[in-house]
Design a protein around this nucleic acid. Structure first.
Lengths: 187, 187
DNA sequence: ACCTGAACACCGTTCAAGT
DNA sequence: ACCTGAACACCGTTCAAGT
Protein backbone atom coordinates (compact mmCIF):
# COMPACT_ATOMS: atom_id res chain seq x y z
CA UNK A 1 0.00 0.00 0.00
CA UNK A 2 2.91 2.34 0.61
CA UNK A 3 5.91 1.26 -1.50
CA UNK A 4 6.22 2.83 -4.94
CA UNK A 5 7.60 0.24 -7.36
CA UNK A 6 9.54 1.60 -10.31
CA UNK A 7 9.76 -1.36 -12.66
CA UNK A 8 6.34 -2.11 -14.09
CA UNK A 9 5.82 -5.21 -16.15
CA UNK A 10 4.56 -5.48 -19.68
CA UNK A 11 1.80 -3.04 -18.79
CA UNK A 12 0.51 -1.64 -15.52
CA UNK A 13 -3.03 -0.84 -16.56
CA UNK A 14 -4.33 -0.14 -13.09
CA UNK A 15 -3.56 1.63 -9.84
CA UNK A 16 -4.52 0.69 -6.32
CA UNK A 17 -6.37 3.99 -6.26
CA UNK A 18 -8.45 3.14 -9.33
CA UNK A 19 -9.44 -0.16 -7.76
CA UNK A 20 -10.43 1.54 -4.51
CA UNK A 21 -12.35 4.22 -6.42
CA UNK A 22 -14.34 1.54 -8.21
CA UNK A 23 -14.93 -0.37 -4.98
CA UNK A 24 -16.17 2.73 -3.20
CA UNK A 25 -18.49 3.64 -6.08
CA UNK A 26 -19.99 0.15 -5.97
CA UNK A 27 -20.30 0.34 -2.19
CA UNK A 28 -22.04 3.71 -2.30
CA UNK A 29 -24.52 2.79 -5.01
CA UNK A 30 -25.18 -0.88 -4.35
CA UNK A 31 -24.79 -1.30 -0.60
CA UNK A 32 -22.45 -3.38 1.49
CA UNK A 33 -22.43 -6.56 -0.57
CA UNK A 34 -21.96 -4.84 -3.91
CA UNK A 35 -18.21 -4.46 -3.72
CA UNK A 36 -17.19 -8.03 -4.49
CA UNK A 37 -13.80 -8.71 -5.99
CA UNK A 38 -15.50 -9.88 -9.16
CA UNK A 39 -17.62 -6.76 -9.50
CA UNK A 40 -14.70 -4.47 -8.77
CA UNK A 41 -12.67 -6.26 -11.42
CA UNK A 42 -15.50 -5.92 -13.93
CA UNK A 43 -15.82 -2.22 -13.12
CA UNK A 44 -12.17 -1.54 -13.89
CA UNK A 45 -12.15 -3.88 -16.85
CA UNK A 46 -9.93 -6.77 -15.80
CA UNK A 47 -10.37 -10.42 -14.93
CA UNK A 48 -11.31 -11.10 -11.28
CA UNK A 49 -7.97 -12.58 -10.36
CA UNK A 50 -6.05 -9.57 -11.72
CA UNK A 51 -7.05 -7.75 -8.54
CA UNK A 52 -4.75 -10.12 -6.63
CA UNK A 53 -1.81 -8.44 -8.32
CA UNK A 54 -2.60 -5.31 -6.30
CA UNK A 55 -4.05 -6.71 -3.08
CA UNK A 56 -3.26 -10.04 -1.43
CA UNK A 57 -6.88 -10.78 -0.59
CA UNK A 58 -10.32 -9.33 0.01
CA UNK A 59 -9.52 -8.29 3.56
CA UNK A 60 -6.68 -6.10 2.29
CA UNK A 61 -9.05 -4.30 -0.06
CA UNK A 62 -11.44 -3.70 2.83
CA UNK A 63 -8.66 -2.34 5.03
CA UNK A 64 -7.44 -0.01 2.29
CA UNK A 65 -11.01 1.16 1.79
CA UNK A 66 -11.40 1.98 5.47
CA UNK A 67 -8.10 3.82 5.56
CA UNK A 68 -9.09 5.76 2.46
CA UNK A 69 -12.19 7.12 4.18
CA UNK A 70 -10.29 7.93 7.35
CA UNK A 71 -7.73 9.81 5.26
CA UNK A 72 -10.40 12.34 4.32
CA UNK A 73 -11.35 12.80 7.95
CA UNK A 74 -7.84 13.58 9.13
CA UNK A 75 -7.82 16.65 6.89
CA UNK A 76 -10.49 18.29 9.03
CA UNK A 77 -9.65 21.52 10.79
CA UNK A 78 -11.17 21.36 14.30
CA UNK A 79 -11.17 25.16 14.46
CA UNK A 80 -9.91 27.36 17.26
CA UNK A 81 -12.72 26.99 19.79
CA UNK A 82 -12.49 25.54 23.26
CA UNK A 83 -11.35 21.92 23.71
CA UNK A 84 -14.99 20.80 23.95
CA UNK A 85 -15.85 22.49 20.67
CA UNK A 86 -12.81 21.04 18.91
CA UNK A 87 -13.67 17.54 20.07
CA UNK A 88 -17.27 18.06 18.93
CA UNK A 89 -16.16 19.29 15.53
CA UNK A 90 -13.88 16.31 14.95
CA UNK A 91 -16.45 13.76 16.10
CA UNK A 92 -19.21 15.34 14.01
CA UNK A 93 -16.96 15.41 10.97
CA UNK A 94 -16.02 11.76 11.44
CA UNK A 95 -19.69 10.89 11.60
CA UNK A 96 -20.42 12.94 8.48
CA UNK A 97 -17.77 11.16 6.45
CA UNK A 98 -18.91 7.74 7.62
CA UNK A 99 -22.60 8.42 6.94
CA UNK A 100 -21.58 9.47 3.43
CA UNK A 101 -20.28 5.94 2.85
CA UNK A 102 -22.60 3.64 4.80
CA UNK A 103 -21.27 0.53 3.11
CA UNK A 104 -17.88 1.05 4.71
CA UNK A 105 -19.19 0.91 8.28
CA UNK A 106 -19.42 -2.88 8.49
CA UNK A 107 -15.87 -3.06 7.15
CA UNK A 108 -14.66 -0.73 9.91
CA UNK A 109 -16.35 -2.68 12.66
CA UNK A 110 -15.25 -6.00 11.23
CA UNK A 111 -11.62 -5.07 10.67
CA UNK A 112 -8.96 -3.90 13.04
CA UNK A 113 -8.76 -0.20 12.18
CA UNK A 114 -5.00 -0.28 12.40
CA UNK A 115 -4.18 1.67 9.26
CA UNK A 116 -1.93 4.74 9.38
CA UNK A 117 -4.80 7.20 9.04
CA UNK A 118 -6.62 5.48 11.85
CA UNK A 119 -3.71 6.21 14.15
CA UNK A 120 -3.52 9.78 12.90
CA UNK A 121 -7.21 10.27 13.61
CA UNK A 122 -6.71 8.95 17.11
CA UNK A 123 -4.03 11.53 17.75
CA UNK A 124 -6.21 14.32 16.42
CA UNK A 125 -9.06 13.29 18.71
CA UNK A 126 -6.75 13.02 21.69
CA UNK A 127 -5.44 16.57 21.37
CA UNK A 128 -8.54 18.41 22.62
CA UNK A 129 -8.98 15.93 25.47
CA UNK A 130 -5.44 16.50 26.67
CA UNK A 131 -5.96 20.25 26.31
CA UNK A 132 -9.14 19.87 28.37
CA UNK A 133 -7.19 18.69 31.38
CA UNK A 134 -7.25 14.91 31.07
CA UNK A 135 -4.03 13.21 32.12
CA UNK A 136 -2.30 11.22 29.35
CA UNK A 137 -3.77 7.84 30.32
CA UNK A 138 -7.29 9.24 30.57
CA UNK A 139 -6.88 11.08 27.28
CA UNK A 140 -6.05 7.79 25.56
CA UNK A 141 -9.05 6.09 27.11
CA UNK A 142 -11.23 9.08 26.35
CA UNK A 143 -10.18 9.00 22.71
CA UNK A 144 -11.13 5.36 22.53
CA UNK A 145 -14.48 6.18 24.16
CA UNK A 146 -15.14 8.84 21.53
CA UNK A 147 -14.37 6.38 18.74
CA UNK A 148 -16.66 3.80 20.32
CA UNK A 149 -19.41 6.37 20.54
CA UNK A 150 -19.11 7.66 16.98
CA UNK A 151 -18.75 4.22 15.38
CA UNK A 152 -21.54 2.74 17.48
CA UNK A 153 -23.83 5.66 16.68
CA UNK A 154 -23.19 5.47 12.97
CA UNK A 155 -23.52 1.69 12.88
CA UNK A 156 -26.92 1.72 14.57
CA UNK A 157 -27.98 4.69 12.48
CA UNK A 158 -27.23 3.12 9.11
CA UNK A 159 -28.63 -0.22 10.26
CA UNK A 160 -31.90 1.66 10.49
CA UNK A 161 -33.16 0.38 13.80
CA UNK A 162 -32.63 3.73 15.41
CA UNK A 163 -34.34 7.07 15.85
CA UNK A 164 -30.87 8.56 15.37
CA UNK A 165 -30.37 11.77 13.48
CA UNK A 166 -28.15 14.77 14.09
CA UNK A 167 -29.92 15.76 17.26
CA UNK A 168 -29.57 12.41 19.01
CA UNK A 169 -25.90 12.27 18.01
CA UNK A 170 -25.18 15.72 19.35
CA UNK A 171 -26.99 14.98 22.58
CA UNK A 172 -25.07 11.76 23.15
CA UNK A 173 -21.78 13.38 22.22
CA UNK A 174 -22.37 16.17 24.74
CA UNK A 175 -23.17 13.61 27.44
CA UNK A 176 -19.92 11.77 26.71
CA UNK A 177 -17.91 14.99 26.74
CA UNK A 178 -19.59 16.03 29.99
CA UNK A 179 -18.54 12.71 31.48
CA UNK A 180 -14.98 13.27 30.29
CA UNK A 181 -14.96 16.83 31.61
CA UNK A 182 -15.93 15.53 35.04
CA UNK A 183 -12.81 13.36 34.94
CA UNK A 184 -10.52 16.23 33.97
CA UNK A 185 -8.26 18.02 36.39
CA UNK A 186 -9.41 21.60 37.04
CA UNK A 187 -6.19 22.85 35.28
CA UNK B 1 -41.44 -16.80 14.85
CA UNK B 2 -44.34 -16.50 17.27
CA UNK B 3 -47.32 -18.47 15.95
CA UNK B 4 -47.59 -22.09 17.05
CA UNK B 5 -48.97 -24.16 14.18
CA UNK B 6 -50.85 -27.25 15.19
CA UNK B 7 -51.14 -29.26 11.99
CA UNK B 8 -47.74 -30.64 11.08
CA UNK B 9 -47.27 -32.32 7.77
CA UNK B 10 -46.04 -35.79 7.09
CA UNK B 11 -43.28 -35.20 9.66
CA UNK B 12 -42.00 -32.14 11.49
CA UNK B 13 -38.47 -33.29 12.16
CA UNK B 14 -37.15 -29.93 13.29
CA UNK B 15 -37.88 -26.94 15.50
CA UNK B 16 -36.90 -23.33 15.00
CA UNK B 17 -35.03 -23.71 18.27
CA UNK B 18 -32.97 -26.65 17.02
CA UNK B 19 -32.01 -24.68 13.94
CA UNK B 20 -30.98 -21.68 16.04
CA UNK B 21 -29.06 -23.92 18.43
CA UNK B 22 -27.10 -25.37 15.53
CA UNK B 23 -26.50 -21.93 14.04
CA UNK B 24 -25.23 -20.58 17.35
CA UNK B 25 -22.93 -23.56 17.85
CA UNK B 26 -21.45 -23.01 14.39
CA UNK B 27 -21.10 -19.29 15.05
CA UNK B 28 -19.33 -19.85 18.38
CA UNK B 29 -16.90 -22.44 17.10
CA UNK B 30 -16.27 -21.32 13.54
CA UNK B 31 -16.61 -17.55 13.61
CA UNK B 32 -18.94 -15.19 11.84
CA UNK B 33 -19.00 -16.81 8.42
CA UNK B 34 -19.48 -20.34 9.70
CA UNK B 35 -23.23 -20.18 10.14
CA UNK B 36 -24.27 -20.49 6.52
CA UNK B 37 -27.68 -21.87 5.66
CA UNK B 38 -26.01 -24.87 4.08
CA UNK B 39 -23.87 -25.62 7.11
CA UNK B 40 -26.77 -25.16 9.50
CA UNK B 41 -28.83 -27.56 7.40
CA UNK B 42 -26.02 -30.10 7.39
CA UNK B 43 -25.68 -29.77 11.16
CA UNK B 44 -29.33 -30.60 11.76
CA UNK B 45 -29.37 -33.26 9.06
CA UNK B 46 -31.60 -31.83 6.34
CA UNK B 47 -31.16 -30.49 2.83
CA UNK B 48 -30.21 -26.79 2.61
CA UNK B 49 -33.56 -25.67 1.29
CA UNK B 50 -35.47 -27.39 4.11
CA UNK B 51 -34.43 -24.48 6.32
CA UNK B 52 -36.73 -22.27 4.26
CA UNK B 53 -39.69 -24.14 5.71
CA UNK B 54 -38.87 -22.54 9.05
CA UNK B 55 -37.39 -19.19 8.07
CA UNK B 56 -38.20 -17.11 4.99
CA UNK B 57 -34.57 -16.20 4.35
CA UNK B 58 -31.13 -15.81 5.83
CA UNK B 59 -31.89 -12.41 7.34
CA UNK B 60 -34.73 -13.93 9.35
CA UNK B 61 -32.37 -16.51 10.83
CA UNK B 62 -29.96 -13.73 11.76
CA UNK B 63 -32.70 -11.70 13.41
CA UNK B 64 -33.93 -14.70 15.39
CA UNK B 65 -30.35 -15.38 16.46
CA UNK B 66 -29.91 -11.84 17.74
CA UNK B 67 -33.19 -11.96 19.60
CA UNK B 68 -32.23 -15.30 21.12
CA UNK B 69 -29.11 -13.79 22.67
CA UNK B 70 -30.97 -10.73 23.90
CA UNK B 71 -33.54 -13.00 25.51
CA UNK B 72 -30.85 -14.30 27.87
CA UNK B 73 -29.86 -10.76 28.79
CA UNK B 74 -33.35 -9.65 29.74
CA UNK B 75 -33.36 -12.26 32.49
CA UNK B 76 -30.67 -10.39 34.39
CA UNK B 77 -31.44 -9.03 37.83
CA UNK B 78 -29.89 -5.56 38.12
CA UNK B 79 -29.84 -5.88 41.89
CA UNK B 80 -31.04 -3.40 44.48
CA UNK B 81 -28.22 -0.87 44.41
CA UNK B 82 -28.43 2.79 43.40
CA UNK B 83 -29.58 3.70 39.87
CA UNK B 84 -25.96 4.04 38.76
CA UNK B 85 -25.12 0.57 40.03
CA UNK B 86 -28.20 -0.96 38.39
CA UNK B 87 -27.35 0.63 35.04
CA UNK B 88 -23.78 -0.61 35.36
CA UNK B 89 -24.91 -4.11 36.16
CA UNK B 90 -27.23 -4.29 33.16
CA UNK B 91 -24.66 -2.84 30.76
CA UNK B 92 -21.92 -5.14 32.01
CA UNK B 93 -24.21 -8.14 31.71
CA UNK B 94 -25.17 -7.20 28.17
CA UNK B 95 -21.49 -6.96 27.28
CA UNK B 96 -20.78 -10.33 28.91
CA UNK B 97 -23.48 -12.09 26.91
CA UNK B 98 -22.35 -10.51 23.66
CA UNK B 99 -18.68 -11.30 24.21
CA UNK B 100 -19.71 -14.91 24.82
CA UNK B 101 -21.05 -15.02 21.24
CA UNK B 102 -18.73 -12.81 19.20
CA UNK B 103 -20.10 -14.07 15.90
CA UNK B 104 -23.48 -12.52 16.67
CA UNK B 105 -22.11 -8.97 16.97
CA UNK B 106 -21.91 -8.28 13.22
CA UNK B 107 -25.48 -9.55 12.92
CA UNK B 108 -26.65 -7.11 15.59
CA UNK B 109 -24.94 -4.13 13.99
CA UNK B 110 -26.10 -5.13 10.53
CA UNK B 111 -29.73 -5.78 11.40
CA UNK B 112 -32.34 -3.56 12.90
CA UNK B 113 -32.51 -4.85 16.47
CA UNK B 114 -36.28 -4.60 16.46
CA UNK B 115 -37.10 -7.96 17.99
CA UNK B 116 -39.33 -8.23 21.08
CA UNK B 117 -36.44 -8.89 23.45
CA UNK B 118 -34.61 -5.89 22.09
CA UNK B 119 -37.49 -3.67 23.15
CA UNK B 120 -37.66 -5.37 26.52
CA UNK B 121 -33.95 -4.77 27.07
CA UNK B 122 -34.42 -1.12 26.22
CA UNK B 123 -37.07 -0.78 28.90
CA UNK B 124 -34.88 -2.48 31.44
CA UNK B 125 -32.01 -0.12 30.70
CA UNK B 126 -34.28 2.90 30.86
CA UNK B 127 -35.57 2.12 34.34
CA UNK B 128 -32.45 3.10 36.30
CA UNK B 129 -31.99 6.25 34.21
CA UNK B 130 -35.52 7.40 34.97
CA UNK B 131 -34.96 6.55 38.63
CA UNK B 132 -31.77 8.62 38.51
CA UNK B 133 -33.70 11.77 37.73
CA UNK B 134 -33.67 11.95 33.93
CA UNK B 135 -36.88 13.25 32.43
CA UNK B 136 -38.66 10.77 30.11
CA UNK B 137 -37.23 12.16 26.85
CA UNK B 138 -33.68 12.19 28.25
CA UNK B 139 -34.13 8.69 29.66
CA UNK B 140 -35.00 7.42 26.17
CA UNK B 141 -31.99 9.14 24.67
CA UNK B 142 -29.80 7.98 27.52
CA UNK B 143 -30.89 4.40 26.96
CA UNK B 144 -29.98 4.68 23.31
CA UNK B 145 -26.61 6.15 24.31
CA UNK B 146 -25.95 3.21 26.60
CA UNK B 147 -26.78 0.76 23.80
CA UNK B 148 -24.50 2.64 21.41
CA UNK B 149 -21.71 2.50 23.97
CA UNK B 150 -22.05 -1.20 24.78
CA UNK B 151 -22.47 -2.34 21.17
CA UNK B 152 -19.66 -0.09 19.96
CA UNK B 153 -17.34 -1.29 22.72
CA UNK B 154 -18.03 -4.93 22.06
CA UNK B 155 -17.75 -4.54 18.28
CA UNK B 156 -14.31 -2.90 18.51
CA UNK B 157 -13.27 -5.36 21.17
CA UNK B 158 -14.06 -8.50 19.19
CA UNK B 159 -12.65 -6.95 16.02
CA UNK B 160 -9.37 -7.00 17.88
CA UNK B 161 -8.06 -3.57 17.03
CA UNK B 162 -8.58 -2.38 20.55
CA UNK B 163 -6.83 -2.39 23.89
CA UNK B 164 -10.30 -3.03 25.34
CA UNK B 165 -10.81 -5.32 28.28
CA UNK B 166 -12.98 -5.07 31.37
CA UNK B 167 -11.15 -2.09 32.72
CA UNK B 168 -11.52 0.09 29.63
CA UNK B 169 -15.19 -0.86 29.41
CA UNK B 170 -15.87 0.03 33.01
CA UNK B 171 -14.02 3.32 32.68
CA UNK B 172 -15.98 4.33 29.59
CA UNK B 173 -19.25 3.22 31.12
CA UNK B 174 -18.61 5.34 34.20
CA UNK B 175 -17.80 8.37 32.00
CA UNK B 176 -21.08 7.90 30.12
CA UNK B 177 -23.05 7.53 33.33
CA UNK B 178 -21.33 10.60 34.75
CA UNK B 179 -22.40 12.53 31.68
CA UNK B 180 -25.96 11.31 32.13
CA UNK B 181 -25.93 12.15 35.83
CA UNK B 182 -24.93 15.72 34.98
CA UNK B 183 -28.07 15.93 32.83
CA UNK B 184 -30.33 14.63 35.60
CA UNK B 185 -32.55 16.82 37.70
CA UNK B 186 -31.34 17.01 41.33
CA UNK B 187 -34.59 15.22 42.42
C1' DA C 1 -47.00 -29.35 5.12
C1' DC C 2 -42.55 -30.83 4.89
C1' DC C 3 -38.65 -32.47 2.60
C1' DT C 4 -35.38 -33.68 -1.46
C1' DG C 5 -32.51 -33.20 -5.86
C1' DA C 6 -31.17 -30.31 -9.14
C1' DA C 7 -30.27 -26.05 -10.76
C1' DC C 8 -29.13 -20.80 -11.07
C1' DA C 9 -26.44 -16.99 -10.28
C1' DC C 10 -23.32 -15.74 -7.48
C1' DC C 11 -18.82 -15.67 -4.21
C1' DG C 12 -13.19 -15.65 -3.01
C1' DT C 13 -9.21 -17.76 -4.40
C1' DT C 14 -5.71 -20.68 -6.88
C1' DC C 15 -3.18 -22.49 -10.74
C1' DA C 16 -1.17 -22.96 -15.17
C1' DA C 17 -0.33 -20.46 -19.02
C1' DG C 18 0.56 -16.52 -22.01
C1' DT C 19 3.12 -11.74 -22.83
C1' DA D 1 5.47 -8.35 -13.65
C1' DC D 2 1.00 -8.38 -15.09
C1' DC D 3 -2.89 -10.43 -16.98
C1' DT D 4 -6.18 -14.27 -18.69
C1' DG D 5 -9.10 -18.69 -18.75
C1' DA D 6 -10.43 -22.31 -16.28
C1' DA D 7 -11.33 -24.45 -12.28
C1' DC D 8 -12.43 -25.43 -7.10
C1' DA D 9 -15.11 -25.14 -3.20
C1' DC D 10 -18.22 -22.49 -1.58
C1' DC D 11 -22.69 -19.23 -1.08
C1' DG D 12 -28.30 -18.01 -0.84
C1' DT D 13 -32.29 -19.10 -3.11
C1' DT D 14 -35.81 -21.17 -6.30
C1' DC D 15 -38.39 -24.75 -8.57
C1' DA D 16 -40.44 -29.06 -9.59
C1' DA D 17 -41.31 -33.19 -7.62
C1' DG D 18 -42.19 -36.67 -4.07
C1' DT D 19 -44.77 -38.08 0.56
Amino acid sequence: MAETRRKPGPRRTLTEQEILDAALALLDTGGTGAASIRRIAAAVGVAPNAVYTYFPDRAAVDRALVDRILAEVTETDPGDGCWWGRAEALAADLRRHLIAHPGVIPLMLGGSMDGPHSLRLNERLREPLAAGGLDPASAVRGTYLLMVFVLGSVALEVAGGAPAGDEQFRWGLDRVLAGLAAEAKPN
